[in-house]
Nucleic acid binder design. Structure first.
Lengths: 325, 325
DNA sequence: ACAATCCACAACGATCGGTTGTGCTTCTAG
DNA sequence: CTAGAAGCACAACCGATCGTTGTGGATTGT
């Protein structure tokens, strides 16, 4: 199916005559006739009834028309998505099914009029760099790393503290506990999935383990989520951290549990990053939406790494005192 | 923008390499390279970073990808809409913004999984003929005309009695009435808009006028809805019938009123038409939805033409006794 | 260092798409 | 009734485009 033929079809419908459509498209009437004939041959149905005073839609043509308009609209949207200048707001999230993607989705529901494109860049460094260079407008990451300052012009504000939960099998000591105090992790072994090595999670795990005296094991290469589930399910000592929002295809027959941690609840600090001189109107709306919807302290006493606590403290100031506003 | 290039782009993304994409599309690697280069030139942005072990999406490529998939999906839907055999359910409605279209819209909301295409055919005869010939699957019309039997195989069941209201200007005798008894129309002049002459409404008006003793005037040719509003607004004797669902662009400065009629309330009888041997699964769903959602007698005592009353009586039988079920 | 992999460029040929010219049908005005 | 106008389709021609084969440059891994 040729998109030019579809556009010609719509033009012919709107004009009512092939001749006027040809004039509007700046081609000859014969070209319109050939394009539509080719489209009809392609679809295998007749779209117009040709009469002496124009062309009239057949039933098939009437049915096809809204689909044709949709197709042209999709083409326009696709072209606009990469057109420089006044394009949709580009936001990077760490994963399309994780909590930050949920935040962006909520924003989209609250502001459906703001065009939105969501991307996932490989790693926090790439995300920060893309924000700095203007290739994307915003990113939701945990990038307030120790010793790693944000580039000039890039600003950040915390938008979500995501609580971690302990993920254990049925034979684990904590399997039947309603909640587990984080301090009880001391001296135990926590499994770190191989697929997050080298990501921004590593620094989080390191400080978390140091603060509460447990050890982090990396068990071999990453064989995928199924192997993770099997390993956890069969072990009475291994545990790992997941969040409520971690998407799992729960295997039938396994008896896995997500145990809440408390006193304090460890939280993973997601921040919004943007470039201070980015004039995109949607960016302001996104920032205000995220700041407004971020719960203050929903999980009682929480723990976050020192580099994140510093940011947290700053965020508790009134908005007027916040930098970059 | 060439749709084949977009399809090539998506194939290259899925494959990760131009070579494999070329194999999957049964073209040469060079053709893939040229198509994507042309697409990039067309869009004005780079979509891939070419490396020695494949092609990787740029940020622009990531943004473009979902739009590209949407475009291909739209193309597939468009082609499927006219493909013979297992296509979407085609329903004819008398007008896209009138009550029957609302019924179909409700059906779509209740059964979003059923593909639906809505068309508007010129006149009830064309609709009945299209149903008979199988070009469309169903129609909502008032086609149980006197002396005009449905073709063999075409069946009908009433689905909506739409109440008529009196439409008058501020100086009309009934302008301040909360309701008007239909019998009070006797001897008065009712204006029939010119654009419904020759349609199925004519027979309705004729019998309605005969039953209640008013006269139907046709005032000149149809100059559009604005002229109708002006005429009604300035007249102290003219009135016309409209329904709640009639879409009007209410003019500023006019003081027009829609007065309910009662004792009995005249209703316009919309029926669903379909071909008995049409096996489309969506058709059964549509019929059951419309029959189930049709209110029995929502407007108190109602009046409908004799040819419609006959059908009404038949429809009050239990479903098992209904023909064609 | 060499082979393998992957993509881009060049040249050539076939197909496609647009234009001009023409003919047929239908509607309308005289 | 007839002639003209309007509207679309068919035919011939021609140029642009698209795909192919052949080749080269760059990177990775052995």
């Amino acid at each position: 199916m040729d998109i030019a033929a579809v556009r010609t079809f719509v033009a012919a419908v709107d004009a009512g005559r092939f001749q006027s459509a040809a004039a509007r498209l700046s081609i000859s009437q014969q070209a319109v006739s050939k394009r539509i004939a080719a489209l009809e041959r392609d679809l295998g149905v007749q779209l117009f009834v040709r009469t002496a005073r124009g062309a009239q839609l057949t039933i098939d043509g009437q049915v096809f028309l809204p689909h044709a308009r949709t197709l042209l609209h999709a083409e326009e949207q696709a072209a606009a998505s990469v057109r420089p200048g006044r394009r949709a707001l580009r936001v990077d999230v760490v994963g399309r099914r994780l909590a930050p993607a949920g935040l962006v989705r909520d924003f989209h529901l609250a502001h459906p009029e703001i065009g939105l494109d969501v991307v996932t860049l490989p790693g926090a460094d790439a995300a920060v760099d893309a924000v700095r260079s203007g290739l994307i407008d915003a990113s939701i990451r945990a990038v307030t790393m120790p010793g790693r300052r944000l580039p000039d012009g890039v600003e950040a504000t915390p938008v979500l503290d995501e609580p971690l939960r302990l993920f254990v099998g049925p034979t684990h000591e904590f399997a039947t506990a309603a909640t587990v105090a984080t301090a009880r992790l001391a001296g135990r072994r926590i499994w770190m999935p191989g697929n997050i090595r080298g990501t921004e999670w590593t620094a989080y795990y390191d400080e978390f383990a140091a603060a509460f005296g447990f050890t982090v094991d990396t068990i071999g290469p990453d064989f995928g989520i199924e192997v993770l589930l099997d390993t956890i399910a069969e072990s009475s000592t291994l545990a790992t951290f997941l969040t409520d929002r971690t998407p799992l295809v729960w295997p039938v027959g396994h008896d896995l549990r997500l145990i809440p941690l408390c006193d304090p609840t460890p939280v993973y600090p997601h921040s919004l990053l943007w470039r201070a001189d980015n004039p995109h109107p949607g960016l302001t709306a996104l920032r205000e939406h995220l700041v407004a919807s971020a719960p203050e302290h929903p999980y009682g006493r929480t723990w976050a790494p020192g580099w994140a606590r510093t940011r947290r403290a700053a965020s508790t100031l009134p908005p007027d005192a916040d930098s970059g506003r």
